[in-house]
């Protein structure tokens, strides 16, 4: 599962460019900083490679395996 802290994002689009599975897209909305944060659009395609998390210069993306809920 991918979680984006939208208010930490500065809108550099590195996560969108380096996602091998095109999971992310830039959204139309504005965050607190006045930039467009990315949006998770195809989460089912994500293979948890963690590229977006690794390359995010602002520690705004977290990728983790989904915990099974009871």
């Amino acid at each position: 599962m991918i979680e984006i802290d939208e208010d930490l994002c500065k809108g550099c689009e590195i996560c969108v460019a380096f996602c091998a599975k095109d999971v992310l897209e830039m959204s139309d909305k504005f965050n607190k900083k006045g930039v467009h944060p990315p949006l998770v659009v195809r989460e089912e395609d994500c293979n948890l490679c963690g590229n977006c998390m690794l390359y995010c210069p602002d520690l705004a993306i977290v990728v983790a395996e989904e915990e099974e809920s009871e």
Binding site: K10, G11, C12, E13, I14, V35, L54, Y55, C56, P57, D58, L59
Partner: peptide
Amino acid sequence: CTGCGDGI
């Protein structure tokens, strides 16, 4: 700044 490599 936006996209700076220093964050990486």
